Simulated assay, not measured.
Amino acid sequence: MPGGKIPRAHYARATRGEIHKFTGVSSRYEEPLSPTLCLNTDQQTVEQSVKLLTELLIKRCKL
């Protein structure tokens, strides 16, 4: 999907069993063992989270 968005219709189809192994419906979510970025939104402000994400993107994309 462009932009990484999954249409709501996909969730409905997965719930009806038309799409198999759909994360969050028929396939469980597997937490990454060593995530590149972890945003603790219950402990950080939006600004802090955005700063961390921006720093990672700049580093990764060499902007």
Rank of each mutant, 00 (worst) to 15 (best):
M1K: 04
M1L: 04
P2N: 02
P2W: 01
P2D: 05
P2M: 01
P2K: 05
G3R: 02
G3W: 00
G3F: 00
G3Q: 02
G4V: 01
G4Y: 02
G4R: 03
I6Q: 01
P7N: 03
P7F: 01
P7G: 04
R8E: 07
R8K: 11
A9F: 01
A9L: 03
A9M: 01
H10L: 07
H10N: 13
H10Y: 08
H10V: 00
Y11Q: 03
Y11W: 03
A12N: 07
R13P: 00
R13I: 00
A14W: 01
A14C: 04
T15I: 08
T15N: 07
R16H: 04
R16D: 06
G17L: 05
E18C: 02
I19H: 02
I19S: 05
I19M: 04
I19Y: 02
H20S: 13
H20W: 02
H20Y: 03
K21E: 13
K21W: 04
K21G: 06
F22E: 04
F22S: 08
F22V: 07
T23I: 15
T23V: 15
T23Y: 06
T23H: 03
G24W: 00
G24M: 03
V25G: 05
V25R: 03
S26Y: 01
S27M: 15
R28E: 14
R28T: 14
R28A: 13
Y29G: 02
Y29E: 07
Y29I: 14
E30A: 14
E30T: 14
E30Y: 12
E30F: 13
P32A: 10
P32H: 09
P32R: 10
P32C: 08
L33G: 06
L33Q: 13
S34L: 11
S34P: 00
S34C: 08
P35V: 02
P35L: 05
T36C: 08
T36M: 11
T36I: 09
L37H: 08
L37E: 09
L37F: 06
L37M: 09
C38V: 15
C38T: 15
C38P: 00
L39A: 05
L39I: 15
L39Q: 04
N40P: 00
T41M: 14
Q43F: 03
Q43A: 14
Q43V: 09
Q44R: 07
Q44H: 09
T45I: 09
T45Y: 02
V46P: 02
V46C: 06
V46H: 03
V46N: 00
E47R: 11
E47D: 12
E47A: 15
E47W: 04
Q48E: 15
Q48G: 05
Q48D: 12
S49I: 08
S49K: 00
S49N: 10
V50L: 12
V50S: 06
V50K: 07
K51Y: 11
K51T: 14
K51F: 11
L52I: 07
L53S: 13
L53T: 15
L53A: 15
T54C: 12
E55H: 10
L56Q: 13
L56E: 13
L56S: 08
L56D: 07
L57P: 02
L57C: 14
L57F: 12
L57Q: 10
L57E: 10
I58C: 12
I58W: 04
I58Q: 15
K59A: 15
R60T: 14
C61W: 10
C61Q: 11
K62A: 15
K62M: 11
K62P: 00
L63F: 10
